[in-house]
Amino acid sequence: MTIDETLAAAWRDSQTVTSDGKSVAREIEGVKVRSTVNHVDHRGSVFEIFEGDLTFWDSPVVYAYQFSCLPGQVKGWGLHEKKFDRYTIISGEILTLLYDARPDSPT
């Protein structure tokens, strides 16, 4: 098969990010994402989880906890009818799947 035949038989993948790396996926109404500040020097680090920015945190932060997940493991589902969850990744990477089951949601 020639390169022209290969290209003719191929199909283009759908775009997943813009040229600057921003996702083009449809976002769930109400979900906010931002980077946090991590100060690192020769002594160690300080990681800002909540710094009081009420323009981003538009409802009170009333509960906080920390959990861990070992490499290669999966945490189970979570569902809250009347609670806002805020996740801060302190170390490593996480893949979080979100599903919007609200009957009156636009998404």
Results as ranks from 00 to 15, higher is better:
residue 3 I to G: 02
residue 4 D to F: 06
residue 4 D to P: 02
residue 4 D to L: 10
residue 6 T to V: 07
residue 7 L to A: 12
residue 7 L to P: 00
residue 8 A to T: 06
residue 9 A to K: 14
residue 9 A to S: 13
residue 10 A to K: 02
residue 10 A to T: 10
residue 13 D to L: 11
residue 13 D to E: 10
residue 17 V to Q: 10
residue 18 T to M: 08
residue 18 T to F: 06
residue 19 S to G: 03
residue 19 S to H: 04
residue 19 S to M: 07
residue 20 D to I: 08
residue 21 G to I: 12
residue 22 K to M: 10
residue 23 S to P: 07
residue 24 V to S: 10
residue 25 A to H: 14
residue 27 E to I: 03
residue 27 E to Q: 15
residue 28 I to Y: 07
residue 28 I to T: 13
residue 30 G to I: 03
residue 30 G to Y: 04
residue 31 V to L: 15
residue 31 V to A: 08
residue 32 K to Q: 15
residue 32 K to A: 14
residue 33 V to M: 13
residue 33 V to D: 02
residue 34 R to M: 04
residue 38 N to R: 04
residue 40 V to F: 01
residue 41 D to K: 07
residue 41 D to M: 13
residue 41 D to E: 13
residue 41 D to H: 09
residue 41 D to I: 11
residue 43 R to V: 12
residue 43 R to Y: 07
residue 43 R to C: 04
residue 43 R to S: 12
residue 46 V to A: 03
residue 47 F to R: 03
residue 47 F to P: 01
residue 47 F to L: 09
residue 48 E to C: 01
residue 48 E to N: 02
residue 50 F to H: 05
residue 50 F to D: 02
residue 51 E to F: 09
residue 51 E to S: 12
residue 51 E to K: 12
residue 52 G to L: 11
residue 52 G to H: 07
residue 52 G to A: 11
residue 53 D to L: 00
residue 54 L to R: 12
residue 54 L to A: 14
residue 54 L to T: 15
residue 54 L to F: 09
residue 55 T to I: 01
residue 55 T to S: 13
residue 56 F to L: 07
residue 56 F to K: 06
residue 57 W to C: 06
residue 57 W to F: 15
residue 57 W to Y: 15
residue 58 D to T: 11
residue 58 D to L: 00
residue 60 P to F: 01
residue 60 P to M: 04
residue 60 P to I: 00
residue 62 V to R: 13
residue 62 V to M: 09
residue 63 Y to M: 08
residue 63 Y to F: 08
residue 66 Q to R: 05
residue 66 Q to K: 10
residue 66 Q to A: 05
residue 68 S to T: 12
residue 68 S to V: 10
residue 69 C to N: 15
residue 70 L to K: 06
residue 71 P to C: 13
residue 72 G to E: 03
residue 73 Q to M: 15
residue 74 V to E: 05
residue 74 V to G: 00
residue 74 V to D: 00
residue 76 G to A: 15
residue 76 G to S: 14
residue 76 G to I: 10
residue 76 G to K: 09
residue 78 G to V: 15
residue 78 G to L: 15
residue 78 G to H: 11
residue 79 L to Q: 10
residue 79 L to K: 08
residue 80 H to K: 04
residue 80 H to P: 01
residue 81 E to K: 13
residue 81 E to V: 08
residue 83 K to F: 10
residue 85 D to F: 08
residue 86 R to G: 11
residue 87 Y to A: 05
residue 88 T to M: 02
residue 88 T to S: 09
residue 90 I to S: 02
residue 90 I to C: 05
residue 92 G to M: 03
residue 93 E to Q: 07
residue 93 E to C: 06
residue 95 L to N: 10
residue 96 T to I: 15
residue 98 L to A: 02
residue 98 L to S: 05
residue 100 D to C: 04
residue 100 D to N: 08
residue 101 A to L: 13
residue 101 A to W: 11
residue 102 R to I: 08
residue 103 P to G: 07
residue 103 P to S: 14
residue 104 D to G: 11
residue 107 T to M: 00
